[in-house]
Simulated assay, not measured.
Amino acid sequence: MTWTEYLVPLGQGAWVTIQLTFWSTIFGALLSFAAGIGKLSRNPLIKALSIGYIEIFRGTSLLVQLFWLYFALPLLGQAIGIDLRLPPVAAGVLALSLNIGAYGAEVVRGAIQSVSHDQYEAATALNFSDRQALWRVALPQAIPEMMPSFGNLAVQNLKDTALVSLISLQDLAFKAEQIRNFTQDSTTIFTIVLAMYFGMALVLTAMMKVLERSVGRWRTARS
């Protein structure tokens, strides 16, 4: 095979990687806000659940989390009489989402806490409830501060998708290893794969920069 013939199967794998990155980043962002805000909650149960989730998924390996969801969870389901088997795509997206969500939650928490205390006092003076103060005062100022960190997490998430190849999900890394085993042309294949990951990271970074500039206008509009 010539290097051009590698591009078709690698392109198929790259498309799987793109889908994994997209969905896990979206779901991870939702989990980030849920857990980050939950950690600041006055409700002790919500706060405890948020802290537990954050600490578990930040304190354990993504690879182990992925294996647990794909291999161990079905066995647990068998023990209790429930079918908990996950397709490889679902296990991959779930593991990536839970992992990036735990790291993103600390970004959300820190950004909300960085909002000036005077802003909260002003919200109290206007008779805002805690929920109104969060949604109408804190988050519009905190979200622009989160965006650079979220951009870094999105790129890290893209690179972490390579781990899903270990549960036979045919992403870019899986396709590369398949072709390498067949051709033994490691240098050419992994050079192409490096370039493809780098290209995807550049595109993702550019998209996050556009989103960052768009959200940054909120700060200008409020100043």
Rank of each mutant, 00 (worst) to 15 (best):
A48V: 13
L172N: 08
Y103F: 15
F198W: 09
L169Y: 04
D83K: 06
P144R: 05
V16R: 00
L134T: 09
W135V: 04
S24Y: 05
S114Y: 01
L96P: 06
G216W: 02
E212N: 03
R222L: 09
G104K: 08
L49S: 13
P140R: 00
R213F: 12
S97E: 05
S165P: 01
Y53G: 02
G110R: 14
A206S: 07
P74N: 06
P87M: 07
A123E: 05
T220D: 11
V210Y: 07
S50I: 14
T188V: 07
L7V: 07
S223W: 09
L45N: 05
A105P: 14
N99C: 02
R85H: 06
I192H: 05
I56W: 12
Y70F: 02
W135E: 07
L153T: 14
A34G: 03
Q156Y: 15
I80H: 11
Q113L: 09
V155P: 05
I18V: 14
T183Y: 07
A176P: 07
Q141K: 01
S61Y: 00
N99M: 02
T205G: 11
E106C: 06
L98D: 01
L10D: 10
T21L: 00
E145P: 01
A29Y: 11
S32F: 11
W218N: 06
A142P: 02
I80E: 10
N43F: 11
R109E: 13
R217M: 12
K47A: 12
I51R: 13
P88I: 06
T187V: 14
T124R: 14
A142D: 01
G77S: 11
D118L: 03
S165W: 00
A176Y: 06
E177R: 15
N43Q: 15
I167H: 00
T124K: 13
Q113S: 08
L62D: 03
F57D: 01
R180S: 13
L204E: 08
R217Y: 15
P144L: 01
T25I: 05
M208N: 09
L31D: 10
P44H: 04
Y120N: 07
R109I: 09
L10P: 04
V203D: 05
E55M: 08
R58W: 12
W218R: 10
L76R: 08
N99L: 02
A173N: 12
I143L: 01
I143Q: 01
T220C: 08
A176N: 03
Y197G: 13
R213C: 10
D118G: 12
A90I: 14
F128C: 03
L69G: 00
D83W: 03
A102F: 11
Q113I: 10
Y197T: 06
T188H: 02
